[in-house]
Amino acid sequence: MWLPLLFLLLGIGLGFLTDVSVPEHFASYLSIAILAALDTLIGGIKGYLNNEFDPHNFLTGFFFNITLAVIITFIGDQLGVDLYLAAVVAFGLRLFNNLSIIRHHLFNYYQEKRKKRIKNAGN
């Protein structure tokens, strides 16, 4: 379980160390990619809690979402339409949706644990 966390820290450290500078014009691409990544991560957690987590689906979804978000932003840029707003809205909605589901799961999990404890105490 420590390996993913280690890699997270490794990625953060590498990101800071490499000193990547994205031109101001492409800053929105980066933020959209982050939003997509966050969405996929939350989606993965939700899937895990729902017991329907598929690692390969997760992996492809992660990169596909990022790529799609960036492409949509790029097209929007070319057309002069703020298409990235569509991506932001879609990802934002899904993000909150998934978060609420996760919250439900965690709440239920806590409740059941508590009931068990009370039952055990009653016995």
């Binding site: 390996l3 993913p4 966390l5 280690l6 890699f7 997270l8 820290l9 490794l10 990625g11 953060i12 450290g13 590498l14 990101g15 800071f16 490499t18 990547v20 994205v22 980066l30 990619a33 982050i34 990544a37 966050l38 996929t40 991560l41 993965g44 997760f58 992996l59 992660f62 990169f63």
Partner: peptide, 13 residues
């Protein structure tokens, strides 16, 4: 790990 690595990198960048 791969996903989190990429995510961390993106965040940091």
């Amino acid at each position: 790990s791969l996903v989190l690595f990429t995510f961390g990198f993106l965040i940091a960048a």
